[in-house]
Design a binder for these strands. Structure first.
Length: 608
DNA sequence: AGTCTATCGT
């Protein structure tokens, strides 16, 4: 069950957390103090006089504004020099420097420096400084602490600005809490605080990343209505979301609409659209869009060419992928780990481990270091052709060269052991991966449960499943479907039906897979009336049976020689445009060859 | 005067 936490209840919660007026309401939060820097003393001598101080500050401002400041040590030197000045530079100069430290992603350092400014230098925090703190906390995924700083801000009588809310909304989005992000925007507008283009941009990006594209389009339209002039970034974000949803034509339409407003598509816009077109087999249009892009003077870069290489590989068009790589080299780009990984992954999928290994070695010889994805692809490839020894050998090798296998690597290996008929070894890995610091995710659980079920180890599967139910994992319908299928295969139909009927109470939406598993279970046992009941039930519940559902049911009918009913359902399939799969066809042909006299079914299938 | 986001890839 999803519990929606409103902005206000969040606020209330945070009030408990901030009982002091210190802007650091998180004693539980261990923030490492920045390292002491030794170089600052040299600069100290140079800034004795007033004019030197002014010069120094101007230098620092320039470095920050022009982006020339690169290392964190340099920034810390600046900070300590400033901290030793008497009188202290203004809070504005500190804010400028902190902004840069945040841009360099040194969030904990930024927070501890603000802390130091407050406690050692006596600088009173203002909205700007606290925004830096909130932003740092949000980047550390500590959004709740960010809200508590907002509480402190209000308590100190400081007015949160549109930036404050934009930071928090972005923090919620990055954490995946888009629902609360939307609530916060609504709340901000209802309570008379401001939101602006950036606020909406952040929200639209969050919605797109969570696949809520239609909502994102809604907010885009709202921006247009308010004449906020969304820019090419916002439009491209939405176009990418539409493409990922399969709404490529809509994305193209939006691009035209945007161009009509005088906003030119840029490299990213074109890349998203080309990728969308390729993903749905619209190669010709993708090609002409690529031409158009270059005609407009927008040249593809390494990343956009890599996307092309990847979609081509995924489609099995290795030759074309290689010619894109050739073009890449021609225009002076150097293939990187993404380029090689796309090829490796494809060769592994095609069981061409020699080729995959060759590309891997080529990558190394060209000075491109393989990463964890490359290793995991190869491991996956060896598992696919059931060479678990090679897979384990690669695991050793990757650990030796200093990589930490991630949850995907472990899941791949667990699947590999299941595939070679060693489900108990798979279970060992599953139970031991935490020793390597990795926690199973839902995918891992699905793989191991399915492996155990398919190896007729239902009781092993069930004991793991019950342990999972007790853990914090939010088991989804996929996991339950695997268990249902395992129970059905083991002939435990009643137990399966019992679990099946509990699903809604667990807040799970029964989908077409789960229904089909149950229908298959009943049909295989010859309980055709029960299967038929479920088939009509699912439609009533708004879950449309698919081709697979009908196929498994017809297979049950044919097995029980229920020919009239088979024809009835085969007709329904024909009307709905569903095809009869290989298993069903084979069963029908077997039936016909032993029942030569059955003309009804023969004429249905082969009308004269 | 200083704080926010910035879209595409295994």
């Amino acid at each position: 069950m999803l519990r929606r936490i409103s902005f206000l209840s969040c606020f209330r919660l945070l009030h408990h957390m901030c009982t002091t007026t210190s802007p650091f309401p998180s004693p539980a939060l261990h923030i490492p103090l920045h390292s002491h820097c030794t170089k600052s003393t040299n600069i100290n001598h140079e800034i004795q006089s007033h004019s030197n101080k002014t010069q120094f500050l101007n230098f620092m401002r320039n470095q920050c504004k022009s982006g020339k400041l690169k290392s964190i040590d340099e920034a810390l030197n600046f900070f300590h020099t400033m901290a030793k000045m008497n009188p202290l530079p203004s809070v504005i100069d500190f804010t400028l420097l902190l902004g840069f430290i945040v841009k360099m992603k040194h969030y904990t350092t930024a927070i501890s420096l603000v802390k130091e400014m407050h406690s050692s230098l006596g600088i009173k925090p203002d909205t700007f400084i606290l925004n830096v703190v909130i932003n740092s906390l949000c980047h550390l995924k500590l959004v709740a602490f960010g809200f508590s700083v907002l509480g402190t801000m209000l308590k100190l009588g400081l007015e949160p600005s549109v930036v404050t809310f934009t930071i928090l909304i972005n923090g919620l989005c990055v954490k995946g809490d888009v629902g609360r992000a939307v609530e916060l925007v609504d709340h901000v507008e209802k309570t008379g605080y401001r939101s602006d283009v950036k606020t909406y941009g952040v929200l639209i990006n969050g919605l797109c990343k969570m696949g809520k594209t239609s909502e994102a389009v809604g907010w885009l339209r709202k921006m247009e209505e308010r004449n906020w002039n969304p820019n090419v970034v916002v439009y491209s974000t939405v176009m990418d979301g539409l493409c990922k949803d399969g709404l490529v034509s809509e994305a193209l339409g939006l691009c035209l609409e945007m161009s009509g407003k005088g906003i030119k598509p840029n490299l990213v816009t074109y890349t998203c659209l080309i990728q969308g077109l390729c993903n749905f087999g619209r190669w010709k249009e993708a090609g002409s869009l690529l031409d158009e892009m270059m005609k407009m003077g927008v040249m593809p870069d390494l990343q956009s060419l890599n996307i092309l290489v990847d979609v081509l590989c995924k489609e099995g068009k290795i030759m074309q992928a290689k010619s894109v790589i050739g073009f890449m080299i021609l225009v002076g780009e150097v293939p990187d780990v993404f380029t090689y990984n796309s090829l490796i992954d494809r060769y592994c999928l095609q069981n061409q481990m020699d080729e995959a290994t060759r590309v891997f070695e080529l990558m190394v010889s060209r000075g491109c270091l393989p990463d964890i994805v490359a290793y995991t692809s190869l491991i996956h490839g060896w598992c696919k052709i059931k060479n678990i020894n090679k897979a384990m050998h690669l695991l050793d090798e990757m650990i030796k060269v200093g990589f930490t296998p991630d949850v995907v690597t472990w899941t791949t290996l667990i699947g590999g052991f299941c595939q070679v008929g060693r489900p108990l070894a798979a279970k060992e890995l599953f139970l031991n991966m935490h020793k390597y610091g990795q926690v199973p995710n839902l995918q891992t659980c699905a793989i191991i449960l399915d492996g155990l079920c398919k190896s007729q180890l239902l009781s092993e599967a069930l004991s793991l499943f019950h342990a999972m139910e007790k853990s914090n994992l939010d088991l989804n319908i996929v996991i339950y479907s695997i268990i249902l299928d395992g129970m059905c295969s083991a002939g435990k139909l009643n137990t399966a039906l019992e679990l099946f009927s509990c699903l809604p109470a667990k807040g799970l939406q029964i989908n077409v897979y789960a229904y089909t598993i149950m229908i298959n279970g009943f049909a295989k046992q010859g309980l055709l009336d029960k299967a038929e009941d479920l088939l009509s039930n699912m439609e009533e519940n708004g879950c449309m049976p698919d081709s697979c559902t009908y196929n498994v049911f017809v297979q049950g009918l044919v097995a029980e020689r229920e020919i009239a009913r088979s024809i009835k359902y085969l007709t329904m399939m024909r009307d709905k445009g569903f095809s009869v799969d290989a298993t069903t066809t084979e069963m029908i042909i077997n039936y016909l060859s032993t029942n030569q006299g059955d003309n009804e079914l023969r004429e249905f299938l082969f009308p004269k």
